[in-house]
Structures are given as C-alpha cells and as structure tokens.
Simulated scan of single mutants.
Amino acid sequence: MTTEKSADILSMDERFNSEMMDSFDEELEMELDDERMDQILAEFADASEVYGLQTGNAKSSLSNRHTYFKELFRLQGELVKLQDWVVHNKLKVVVLFEGRDAAGKGGVIKRITQRLNPRVCRVAALPAPSERERTQWYFQRYISHLPAGGEIVLFDRSWYNRAGVEKVMGFCNDDEYEEFFRSVPEFEKMLVRSGIILVKYWFSITDDEQHLRFMTRIHDPLKQWKLSPMDLESRRRWEQYTKAKEVMLERTHIPEAPWWVIEAVDKKKARLNCINHLLSQIDYGVVEHAPVVLPQRVYNDDYIRGPVPQEMFVPARY
C-alpha cells in the first residue's frame, strides 16, 4: 500500500471517528450544565478509550469541545434574551434554512430551539405538497406558518424547494420555475414591508463531506431514518443541484432579503457562526423582568392524598 493511499485511509478513519464523537456531543449538549461540564467531558475522554473510539489526541479534542460548549451556552443565553425582546416588542421573525441534504440545517435548528420557549420559537418543516396544495398558489401553504407578533419561525427548508429539489427532480415545469423567480422577490419584499424580519441561510458543504455524512447515516441505525430515496438520488445529481443552487442565489439575493452562506463542513463552527450571525441581525436588548418570587404552598388539614394503584407505575428498570 502506498504512503498516499495509507494517508487517505487514515484521514477517512479520522473523519468517521469525528462523526461518531459528534453524535456523543449531541447527547451531551442536552444534559450538560456549567458545573458538571468539566467532570463529564473528562469522563467522556476516558470512556472513549473503553468503547474503542479512535479519538486521536483526546486531551486536545477535549479542549476544543470545552470551548465549543462554553461558546454554545453563551450564545444560547443570548438567544433567550432575543426571545424576550421579540415577545416584548411583538416582533415577527422568519429564518430560512436551506442547503444540500446532510448539510447540518437540522443540527443548528436544534441548537437554536434547544433552550427557547416552543410557543415563541417554532419550526416549520413542511412535507411534500398534497394533491390539493399542488393546485394552490405556490406560496399559499407557507403563509399559514408565518409568525404573528412575538413569534420566531424557523423554516427547515422553505419555498425555495421550487428552485432546488423541484427543479432538479422535475417536479415543476419550466414555466412554474420561471414564475417562481418572478414572484419570490416580490413575495419576500411584501413580507418585509409587513414588518417581518426575514433572514435566509444557505449551508454549504463539499462533495466529499456530503458523501461522508451519508455513509455515516447508512451505518448508524439511529440516523438511517434521515436518508430518504430523494436524499440518495441527490447524491447522483450533485452537479445538477450545484447549478440550481447557483441560479437560485443569483436570482433571489435581494437587498431586502439577502442570502447568507454558512461554511458548514465543520458542523460545530457552522452552528456557532450561524447563531452568532442570527443574533447580529436583530437589534435586541435586555428586557427587565420583576424578580420571581415563589409563593408559599397552601396546606389544608383536611387534604388527604389519594393512593395510586401500583399497576399504573412505569416499571423502574433504571
């Protein structure tokens, strides 16, 4: 085996291991708090050897993850402040997340919503249009998901499906495709004039990176559900998607609603960069709240708690 080929295999192994580590990190992010972080991350570094994960320089990667978590928590704290500002000032915010399959859109959306009120910040991820919806004005099914005052809506894919998957897969004809490009700038200008803050992100990854992420999903039972037949077909049509993306960005990058491109090969950096940029798009401040005082619990002498039948309890297996 040549030195060059050995290096390629080693590089692929490192990237697969990095993907596995990222899966662990996703779970850690749901559990960690600042006081426990150092202890848990240190234990995780030791555990990786027990589970046979090839983590390379564990202490070095531990430091990187420590920085990532610290910065993520800081940015999520700012997102909570932004949420309060949006509610207090009755702002209407729409954020579009577009990009190739496995580009990391869902990952950053999860980090944005993770510590926010789902009644304020919600995700719109529309399925394929029904037969009835196909007969409607193209933008009609998206309108019902737009925010009222005091709401943030994150579109996990959006009306730009027509410029991407529908064009590449032949789900729209040339006239419908051209009509979309005539309509979408006016549609978005109308949204902005109505008071909606509209932010559009394109998540950019390389051909090799998408291939790696698809292979990881194929071999990970917990992520196989993310791969649809359409996703697999998108691999074969990489170049067609590239051309469609270039046309889309060129024809819909308008001053009222510009596109912002996120370099997303490094998922952790992409998440931090996207959240940081999103925060910069809205001039928010701190909303003062009255101190929260826990009221005294009321005790009644005649109250007797009723018994709960044992068979109603979930078995305590853990």
Rank of each mutant, 00 (worst) to 15 (best):
K110S: 11
A244D: 09
D208K: 04
F97Q: 00
K70W: 11
Q54C: 07
I197M: 11
F203L: 13
T135K: 14
R235W: 08
P307V: 14
P307A: 02
S23Y: 04
D220R: 08
R65Q: 14
T242E: 12
S61P: 00
E256W: 12
L227V: 10
K200Y: 04
I304R: 14
I197K: 07
L272H: 01
Q54A: 14
L79V: 05
L227M: 13
E43Y: 04
A102L: 12
R74G: 06
V94P: 03
I275C: 03
E250M: 07
A47L: 10
E49D: 12
L10W: 06
G104E: 11
H88K: 12
K189I: 10
L96G: 11
Y51K: 06
D283A: 00
L62W: 13
M169Y: 03
L79P: 05
M37D: 03
I143F: 04
R213C: 09
I304N: 05
M230C: 01
M312W: 10
R236H: 04
T3V: 13
L28R: 01
R182D: 13
D46C: 11
T55P: 06
G285R: 12
I143C: 07
F187W: 09
G52A: 11
R65D: 10
Q54N: 13
Q140I: 00
W238M: 07
P118G: 10
W260G: 07
R317F: 15
E250R: 09
Q140S: 03
V308R: 06
W202P: 02
E27T: 04
V86H: 03
D174G: 01
S11A: 15
G107I: 11
K200L: 10
P295W: 09
I109R: 05
R237Y: 11
R134M: 02
P221F: 06
G170Y: 12
Q296T: 09
A103S: 15
A128K: 11
T113A: 13
K59Y: 14
K267Q: 00
I143M: 07
D231E: 12
P307N: 06
V292N: 09
H88N: 06
A257C: 12
G150W: 06
V314D: 10
S11D: 14
V308Y: 05
A316N: 14
Y142Q: 09
K70A: 14
M230K: 08
M1P: 15
K245L: 04
N117Q: 08
Y177R: 03
Q240P: 00
G77D: 05
E131D: 13
T216S: 13
K200S: 03
M169A: 01
R162W: 12
K59V: 04
K268L: 08
R141V: 15
E26S: 06
S23T: 01
R134Q: 14
Y177I: 00
I218R: 00
A124G: 07
V87C: 12
D302I: 04
A58V: 14
K223T: 07
R100A: 12
M190V: 03
N117V: 13
G52V: 11
E26V: 00
P295N: 15
P229T: 05
